[in-house]
């Protein structure tokens, strides 16, 4: 069976990180499984972890009064889920629900934070990767906001 360290080393997100750093980060991770329909987390939950999705699909949802839950985005294999553990008030801002059976590595944010503080190079490498994810999500969200298909074909 593959260890967390193996899975971290194989993931696109951490693949190019130096192996000793991969080992350190793997020490903060654990395997988790979510059944179809199960919540990975709920809006307002304390945010202590983030997830690296190994398989399956997760919908990020927000409840719109009068309309019900709307899906803002879905994430799948190789994607990183949640960065609210890094920024105050450390609360989940959306619901995240498994649309299919989903396997992931859950990383303990406090553990990662400590390792990054202890080794600034690791901290830089780790947050640099996270910044890329955040920037890509922001760009995609901006495109979504344009509602491209609404008026012109």
């Amino acid at each position: 069976m593959k260890t967390i360290a193996d899975l971290v080393a194989e993931s696109a997100f951490f693949r190019e990180l130096a192996p000793p750093y991969q080992q350190i980060l793997a020490g903060c991770g654990r395997n988790v499984v979510f059944k179809t329909g199960a919540f990975v987390f709920r809006e307002g939950d304390e945010s202590r972890e983030f997830y690296l999705l190994r398989a399956g699909k997760v919908a990020i949802e927000v409840d719109v009064p009068g309309r019900g839950a709307m899906i803002i985005q879905t994430l799948g294999e190789g994607d990183v889920l949640s960065w609210s553990w890094m920024v105050p008030p450390y609360k989940k801002r959306f619901d995240a629900r498994a649309v299919e059976l989903t396997r992931a590595i859950a990383f303990d944010g406090a553990c990662i934070g400590k390792k990054c503080e202890a080794d600034a190079k690791l901290g830089y490498e780790f947050f640099r990767r996270f910044t890329v994810v955040i920037a890509e999500r922001l760009a995609a969200t901006r495109l979504q906001l344009l509602d491209l298909y609404a008026d012109r074909p």
Binding site: I71, I72, G78, E100, A140, L143, Q144, L148
Partner: peptide, 23 residues
Amino acid sequence: ATVDRAMSGWRGNVGVVTGLIGR
């Protein structure tokens, strides 16, 4: 296929089509 927005219960992808290109 992907859509820009969907109500909960939709089992397909949500997100911009450009997001599909990378993978």
